[in-house]
Amino acid sequence: MSASSIFVILISAIFVNNFVLSRFLGICPFLGVSKKVETSLGMGMAVTFVMTMASIITFVAQRFILDLLGIQYMQTIVFILVIASLVQLVEMVIQKTSPVLYQSLGVYLPLITTNCAVLGLTILNIQNEYNLVETIFHAIGAAIGFTLAIVLFAAIRERLELVDIPVEFKGFPIALITAGLMSLAFMGFAGLV
């Protein structure tokens, strides 16, 4: 493992295999919480924190519990429980230590449990057989990619609100078509790594 391989993992997770726009993970918050730039930035920060923590904990759980006991088929149940309790824990800690941060992130935290980008990331880490350092950088890259996509998308949607379009396209349909165009733009990164 070298510095360059970590750089490749990071760049490919942010741009080439962007979690939202090319892997289709985390679409629900991408469409649901992207009406304003500030809120989507808050969501991105909360997701970044949970993704990194969850990746480390599930890595340990896979190596020292599931592999050791030979019960890999319990992966889905164990991972989702780790994520759910982690989100709960993060919520309690932030509430006690930083009420200001809790005010801005509070509402998004419970939503992260059912964000498939987090569970997807932890499963991909195991499937790609990453070691701990690679896992952490993959998580950071995925989280930056998610935040980048959702903030860019929110900026476009703020303007879409005012555009004159057929009533059938209002809301989700036009948002999806916009996401399609963004995804097309992100395909331009394909040759990068």
Partner: peptide, 25 residues
């Protein structure tokens, strides 16, 4: 080929959703 890739998925669903909205309206 674009239709089998990510952008095609988003756009096809967007258009289908608009058609469905039209029928429901």
């Amino acid at each position: 080929a674009l239709m089998t890739m990510a952008p095609g998925a988003f756009m096809a669903l967007g258009v289908l959703m608009a058609v469905f909205n039209r029928i429901v309206y």
